[in-house]
Each structure stands twice: as structure tokens, then as C-alpha cells.
Simulated assay, not measured.
Amino acid sequence: MNVARGILVLIFCTLFIASYFTNKYVLSILKFTFPTIFQGWQTSTGALLLLVTWKLGLVEINGFSRSAAFSQLPGSFLFIGNIYAGSKALSLLPIPFFFVLQNVSEVFAFLMVAVTHREKSSWMKLLSVCMLLGSAASLILYNPRFGPSGYTWASVHLFCVGAYKVFQKNTKTSHLSDLEEQFMNYVISALLLVSLAYSTGDLTGALDFPLLTSYRFHTGCLGSAILSFCLMLATVKLKNSLPQELCGVWCFLAKVLASGLSLYTFNTVLSPVTLCCVILNYTGEALFVYSDRFR
């Protein structure tokens, strides 16, 4: 790996950890439990920043037809489900548990693609799928104190993440680039989430939030929006610079680093059983990534 790619990987991992930690801080430590407001703020900021960077010539977004935009609508709705349920789950679950359940989205996407494309799988892939499913099920069974709400929202999150991966794989014939897809996701999400904030009463609740005037709250929300946008750009750059299998390797390592550091940052205590579930899950993900790279 050359120096430029090494720097890109380092930036990606740093942004990945910082983004999840900032979101966790706002959602769990500050207890800002209004996902329509929080994600509406993040997506509207992301759309604005993407528009500004495009006008400045820092990123490339071409014009796209109405048919191409319409074809992205199902993906945008899945994106909304992803970020909304992800916020709810992250506010309730420790980061290692969140990633354990999120990793099951790989199983969901794999099974959907295997069924629709009738692809044969290696024994290594099947073993990794069993490890991912078994460890996630064991975590829920032997550590129920974060459920059912936390595990329910995590299940919705992993379903939307997996379905979005399948959607992307089956609709790559469209003429939308990754940034154009993300711009559509940002705009539609911001519009829908802002409207939901009024109808669900989240706006009223957010106005009564005790830390609304706190600099910690303002700094956390501003940092979460900027870091999420920068992580999106770094992820797109990583996907365009490295083979898909290598991208999976670095995403896996970023999750491991984030999980390990979160044990000290958020004072997370793992029992022997839950620690085994986490280790088994990450071993299964490593095997899953390995089988993709060396098939």
C-alpha cells in the first residue's frame, strides 16, 4: 500500500471512531433522545455541505434525470430507516453490542443475494454466517437488560442496512454515482424527518431539552454532523481507491478499534459470556471478509 492510500485509511479509521463516539455521546451521555431532530439535523447539514463542496469544485456531482432520481427513492427510504433505527439502537446499546447486531446485516444481504442470484457459497462463508448469527442470538439471549427496545431497534437497523446493500447491488445500472445517491438520501431524509418532527411532537420535546443551551450539546451536535459528512466522503473515497475486499478489511478493523476504545471511553463492562459473543462475532466477520477477499 502506498503512502496516499495509507493516509486515506488512517483518516477513514479516525473519522469512523470519532463519528460513532460523538453520536454515542450526544445520544447516551447527553440523552438527546429525539432521532427525528438529531438525524434531520445531520442529513440537512450533510446535504448543505455536499452542495457547498460541489459548488467549490471539491467533489463531482453531475446532473441526473428524474427517472434516475425516482429509481433511488426505495434506497432513500431504506436509508431513513437505517439512520433512524440506528440512532435509537446506539442510544440504548454499548458500541460493541451495536456492531455485533449490525454485522448481521451482512448475513441478511448475503442470503438475499444468494437466493436472487443463485450463487453457491464456500464452506468458509457458511461458517462465518453461522458464527455471526449464533453470536448475535446468544448476546440477546444471555444479556437481555438492553432489550427489548434496544435489540428491536437494532434489528430494524440491520434489516435496513442489509436491504440497502441488496438494493445497491441490484440497481447499479442506474447512472447515479455514490455521491449523487448520497445527495438524494440526504435531501429526502431531511425533508421527511423534519416533517415527522412536527407530527410526532419531537420538536416540542427538543425545545424543552434541559441541555439545549449547553455548549456541550451544541458542540456535540455540530461535531456529529460534520464528522458524519466527512466519514461519508472518506468512505466513498476509500471505495473508489481500493478493491471492495480491502474496503471490507479496513471497515472491520475500524469497528474493532472503535469497540475496544469504547470500553474505556464509555466505561462499558462486559461479562464473560457477552465478551465471548463479541469475540465470536468479530471472528465471524473476519472470516466473512477473508472469504470475500480470497475466494
Rank of each mutant, 00 (worst) to 15 (best):
Y186H: 12
V26C: 02
F294D: 10
A68W: 05
T235W: 05
E119L: 12
V115D: 10
L203K: 08
N103Q: 07
S122G: 13
S44V: 12
I37V: 14
V278T: 04
P94Q: 01
T274G: 06
V52S: 10
I61V: 10
G81M: 12
L30F: 03
T116M: 07
L287K: 12
W153S: 03
H157Y: 11
L15E: 00
A286L: 08
K239T: 07
L101G: 00
Y164T: 15
L233F: 06
N185G: 07
V256A: 13
S195H: 06
S65V: 10
V107Q: 02
F266V: 14
C160L: 09
L212H: 09
P148C: 06
I188N: 01
G150E: 01
M131G: 00
N185K: 14
F98C: 00
M1G: 14
T14Y: 08
V100L: 12
P148S: 11
D208Q: 10
P35Y: 04
R145V: 14
Y215L: 14
H157C: 11
S241R: 11
Q39D: 10
K31Y: 05
A197T: 08
P35G: 06
N185R: 11
S138A: 13
T116P: 04
G205F: 06
S271Q: 11
G134K: 13
A4G: 05
R145A: 14
F146H: 09
V161G: 01
D208C: 10
E106S: 12
T36W: 02
Q39M: 14
S177W: 05
P96T: 06
S135D: 03
M112F: 07
S199I: 15
E181M: 05
Y20R: 09
L222V: 11
L257M: 14
L253I: 14
G284V: 07
A18W: 02
E245M: 14
G40Y: 01
T283N: 08
Q244P: 04
T235Q: 09
A137G: 09
K88S: 09
G248Q: 04
K120M: 12
V194R: 11
G162W: 00
K31H: 13
L111H: 05
N23H: 10
F217N: 06
L176W: 03
V194M: 12
Y264K: 04
Y84F: 13
T53Y: 02
F77M: 02
G162F: 02
G205Q: 03
L222K: 05
S199E: 07
F159Q: 01
A68G: 12
M184H: 09
Y215P: 03
A163Y: 03
T33C: 07
E180I: 08
T268K: 04
L207V: 07
V161A: 10
L139V: 05
R293P: 08
L51Q: 07
C160E: 02
K169V: 04
A286F: 12
F294R: 15
L90H: 00
S67M: 11
V52A: 13
L78D: 00
L49H: 01
L192M: 10
I95Y: 00
V100R: 01
